[in-house]
Every structure is written in C-alpha cells, then in structure tokens.
Design a binder for these strands. Structure first.
Lengths: 242, 242
DNA sequence: CGAGGGTTTGATGATAGTCAAAGTGAGTGG
DNA sequence: CCACTCACTTTGACTATCATCAAACCCTCG
C-alpha cells in the first residue's frame, strides 16, 4: 500500500522545510503512484525524455554520465528526498542517467502536471527552482573538489558531505552510518582510479579519520576530516521537499 | 542611454527562443536599469546575498569558486545572454563568484520582483527553471571533463564548446573569434596548472587544430577537435532569454 | 566447489605539478 | 624617447601524483 503524503516519513526530517496543509493537498493530487526498484536498476537515462518525475522516499542511488569511450563520471550520490527528472521536465532531455544502488522506493509524478504546478502553485514552482539551484550549487562544489583538491582532500571532502547529509536525514547514529556504495562509485565521483581511491582510503584509515568497510562508514574525527578537506563543518540548511 | 528591451540585440540571435509581445511587456517592467563594468570588476561574491539579478547584454566574464587555501576553480565562461544571481535569488546565498573579464554591459533586475514573476508570469518562471536546469547540465559536462578526460581532450572539449557558443551568438566568423581570457582562466576551469595548460595548447597548435594567441582563437579543424574531445559536433539548442 | 564481484597490494610508467628563468608587450613615469 | 614595471606566456629540468597492469584475496551465491 502506497505511502500517503500526509504520513510521508520525509516530512518529519529536519532536512526539509515544513509543509502547509495547502501544500500537502496539492502534493496528494500531484502524486500518481509509487515505484519500488531493485539494486542496480536504471531509473532515468541520459538523453531520454522521461515522462515521469520522482522523489526518493527510501534507498540510495547515483547520478552519472558516460563518455562514448566508456569512462563514467558520477555526478552525485542520491539520498532520500532527492527530486529526479527535472531536467527532462523542463528541457525535454536528461543530461545524466540515474540508477539505484540499493533497493529504492520512489514517489512518482506525471510530467504533464508540471505545467499546472507552475500555473497554479507558484510557491511549489519556486521550490522547484530552488532545488535546481541547489543541485547547481552542489555540482559546483564537486567541480571544485575534482579540479583543485588532491586525492586525500577529495575523499575527506566526500565523507564530510556524506556525514552532513546523513546527519540531516537521521541516517547517522553513533558516529557511523550505512554506506552501501562500491569503491568504484567513489572513484568515479572523484575522478580517480579504483586503485588510487583504495590507497587513499587506507591512508584515511591509518590517520584514524574514517573507516569504511562492509557497507558501513565510521567517522572517527570529523573536525580533522573537515580540516583536511578545507571546508567549514556546519549542518545543512533545510531545503524544500517536493 | 539604456537599451530598450524592444530593441535588445540579444533577441535577434538564434541562440534564443522568440519573445511574445506579452513577454516583452513584462520584461520592460522587470528591468530596473543597466550596469556597465570594467574588466576585472567583481559582480557577485560567493556567500553574499545579492539584491540584484542580471542578464549579460555584452562582454565576457567568468564564474568561479575559491578554496580557503587559495586555489580557484572556474565553473564556466560567461557569454552574452547569461542570467546571473539566480542562486541568491532563490537560496539567499551565492554558491560562486562572478567577475567581468572584458568590459560588460548588464541588464539589471530587482530581486524582490522575482516573486511576482512566479506569481503572475508562470511562463517566465518556467523559463527561469529551465535556465537553472541548463546550468546544471553544463556543470555536469564540465565535471565529466575535469574528472575523466586527459589534458588534450579537456582543452579540445573546451574549444568545441566555445566554438558552439560563439556560433550561436554570432561571435564566430570565418573560423575565428575573439577570446580574451588568460591561460590561467582555462587552466583553472579544467583543473590543470598553468604550465601544463600552456604545453597542451602547444600540442593542439602543432596538431593544426586550434591556435589561440593575442585574444583570438582560430579553429582549424572542428571535426578532428570534436573527435579528440569525444563529443558530437552539433549546434546548440535555442534557450530562453530572461 | 567453482564463478564472479568487489577489495587489496606490489611494481612500473605516464601524466601532470613545481620551480626557475627568460621572453613578450602594454603601460608608466622620468 | 627610453628605462622600468607588471602581467602574461613560454620553455627547461626535476619531482610527485596518479594510472595501469597484474595477481591474490576476500566474499557470497549457485
């Protein structure tokens, strides 16, 4: 049985801005169903014109792009609350692919209703733009990392981000959280080879900063991790949920 | 004397979607003035909450982020038609800085009217979201380049993009166009050192693909350049102008 | 028990960074 | 008109980071 928006578990998280009754009412009509996918399932394809939009309710995934020659760049990790398909929604074409890493549960919206959202619910339209701007912001941070930080700082930066996002979603408990990605995923996100990423993880482990094994990360020293990554250590600002 | 929107030179470019009379009417009221800045002038600062939004009418600039330790990542090159300040407009905070490379002429909008745009002009709000999604798309392409392409392919990719953008704006003529950036700017955009970028430019010159000197690029072989960069060579799709 | 995905390690080589110095040209002031 | 500075480009020599190749070692799963 599908989750009713009224009892959507995401709304409780402090990662998201509160919902008014009116907004809730609209979401109920915007939503057309729910989708559950297995690990490894492709959800959206680069270049395609997807007829549906999704909000992630549960599970983890990733956005990526492929070079014709086969190299993969992971754009970012997808956590609950992410909104998928906006690019196809406005530009008729996805600029990247999305796939599930774990089993995922997705809230499904019909793309055709996107226009009525702009027409009749300017607050929600504003939130959509907010989400797009936020996505742009994160990609900028990634670009900064991939372009300017060395391997140790890059991996440290990634873990700081993961800890912050995990914290805001209640996934982090007792300094550790589930993190069921493959090393190849992080390597592709940061622009390093698998081997080099693996060696960098070992260095971070030897420095007693983070340990990542068997799908679980342990954060041993966030302050030092943030110092290494050269980022301020602050909680994430609440964002709109759609 | 300020440019009237009705005779805005950008509207003629095939880079942009056509304007209806109604849209034009709104733009006239949205616009509050014009700004002309000298080369090197900072226009928006990372972390600031800018009260104004801009559309670039003339001139070139760049978006960039700085690491506390001083490294600079150039996010992209700013060409005429770019819309600046949207992040501060919706998120109350810029995620990057913007500065002028050449003398620039900017169309100025008041951020406070952004909300009335969402409220009363859903088509324009939709266009804004389009622009944000497009910006996200380009950042994804950059990330792919910086993360996965080697120096030769990266620089080739950059020049292909510059040629495409220049073409759509009518800046490209006879296989050449003005390109008044410094080598350091491209190095910071692609994540390479100045020295390495310089050597890569020499290789491209020796391969008879592009020559860039004295602020002018000559494209000698676009097809081969695109092949090196591993990208399809196609004209840019028209986008909304705000 | 064998196959296959993911991780770990070593050895070697290529790509890119750093340091240093010299060349160019525009702009400035004596 | 001629130093002089300053920003930008170019090149050489040396070093470090990172990629590649290869092999072994987990696992889990059929």
């Amino acid at each position: 049985m599908p989750t009713a928006c009224t009892s959507c578990p995401l709304r409780k998280m402090d990662a998201f801005q509160p919902f008014s009754d009116d907004e809730l009412d609209f979401m109920l009509r915007f939503k057309v169903g729910e989708l559950v996918v297995d690990p490894g399932t492709p959800i959206l394809m680069e270049g395609s014109n997807a007829p549906q939009l999704y909000t992630v309710l549960e599970g983890l995934g990733l956005r990526y792009k492929l070079l014709p020659s086969g190299e993969r760049q992971v754009l970012n990790l997808i956590f609950p609350g992410a909104f998928l398909g906006l690019q196809a929604g406005v530009m008729q074409q996805m600029g990247h692919s999305v796939e599930a890493t774990t089993k995922m549960k997705l809230c499904v919206f019909d793309r055709k209703t996107l226009w009525t959202l702009f027409k009749n619910h300017p607050e929600r339209a504003f939130d959509l733009t907010w989400l797009a701007a936020m996505q742009e912001h994160f990609l900028g941070e990634s670009l900064l990392t991939v372009g300017q930080r060395d391997a140790l700082a890059s991996v440290a930066w990634m873990f700081v981000l993961v800890a912050q996002r995990g914290e805001s979603l209640g996934l982090l408990a007792g300094g550790k959280m589930d993190f069921p990605y493959a090393q190849q995923d992080l390597a592709d996100a940061l622009g390093y080879s698998l081997v080099h990423l693996n060696r960098t993880l070992r260095r971070l482990r030897e420095l007693q900063l983070v340990t990542w094994a068997d799908g679980v990360v342990h954060f041993h020293d966030m302050a030092e991790l943030a110092r290494l990554a050269d980022v301020p250590l602050e909680p994430m600002a609440p964002r709109p949920l759609i």
